[in-house]
Design a protein around this nucleic acid. Structure first.
Lengths: 169, 169
DNA sequence: GCATTATCTGAACGATCGTTCAAAAAGCTT
DNA sequence: AAGCTTTTTGAACGATCGTTCAGATAATGC
């Protein structure tokens, strides 16, 4: 809270007047973050080449100058890692956000199937879950990996595996 | 630290006599955790059916009774998420641990190639990195996913994708 | 049984945390 | 300019954090 006070040049009272508490502020931040990410993924879903756009989305989120490495971390991923330290309100915001983004990944998969970039036998929900997984794993990978080419190869592998076969049921 | 004091029924002085500080204790815990995980992965690498053993390893780490859901989180993954809040000593322990486990994943891949469960064109280092990624992603997935079958299907997908093609260079 | 060493005890330290609130300042309406 | 509402201020609160250390206790060697 004191970091935020300094960054915004605001006194504690002002912050607590606008937001009720640390957790209330956290909830709003998470919701904004999710809203932002949703917009990005909906752009991907609206693209004419959804798979390529998906790759670009992954790359822009995971690859950036070294001095901004910390930005490779995802707020939601970070929050899930500390889910047991967060209050109920914050937990709900994080979990709802994950579901919300999962729906967006599903939209991307559906669009790719529609444009025949993916087989129509692709299980949409499973693929969406899987994509979200891949993103989480790559986020952690990107934090500790300074070789951008290695990250890019991982993304290529994700895009390839998306097109291969899926387990039954 | 006070939680640990209570759990061990030890007074702060005793803990600080054995370990120098919170960070020193953290370092030892991480090292122990890595040692443990290494032993498990080396078992997998020594198996006659490394890919099946690898699947079992994933399942045992990711699937367990619901009341122990919090145990699905991995100490290293959690630590990477908070890497910016950890001191230098702790950071080094975490990053070294990740490299160490990555080597173990590489051993598993090598063994699988040797036993012809994987093509000998499989790029060992990339596959090891990739496997570690998959594990990280699945850890987060398992924390928020109560459907064990969904987790199991994801693991099956990982084992399948391990056998498919890899990006060049 | 005594001396010496190693270990443990637990109250207490200073720093930092999230948060509050009476008072001051700024904004708005007439 | 006066009166009323809204917002901001900043010192200060109690709780909790990692940590310390003089003294008590236990373990060991002779």
């Amino acid at each position: 809270m004191r970091d935020i006070q300094q960054a915004l040049d605001m006194r504690p009272g002002s912050i607590y007047a606008r937001f009720q508490s640390k957790e209330g502020l956290f909830k709003l931040v998470v919701e904004k973050y999710v809203e932002n990410s949703k917009a990005q993924l909906q752009c991907v879903a609206n693209s004419n080449t959804p798979l390529q756009s998906l790759g670009d989305f992954f790359k822009s989120a995971l690859i950036n100058p070294d001095e901004m490495r910390y930005m490779r971390q995802c707020l939601l991923v970070k929050s899930i890692a500390e889910l047991d330290l967060i209050g109920e309100v914050g937990q709900k915001a994080v979990l709802d956000g994950m579901v919300s983004l999962n729906d967006c990944f599903a939209l991307v998969v559906e669009k790719a199937i529609l444009l025949e970039e993916l087989s129509n036998t692709t299980p949409v929900d499973m693929a969406a879950n899987w994509l979200q997984n891949q993103f989480v794993g790559l986020r952690a990978f990107a934090v500790i990996q300074s070789d951008n080419d290695a990250i890019e190869r991982m993304i290529d592998k994700v895009l390839y595996d998306l097109t291969t076969q899926w387990p039954e049921n």
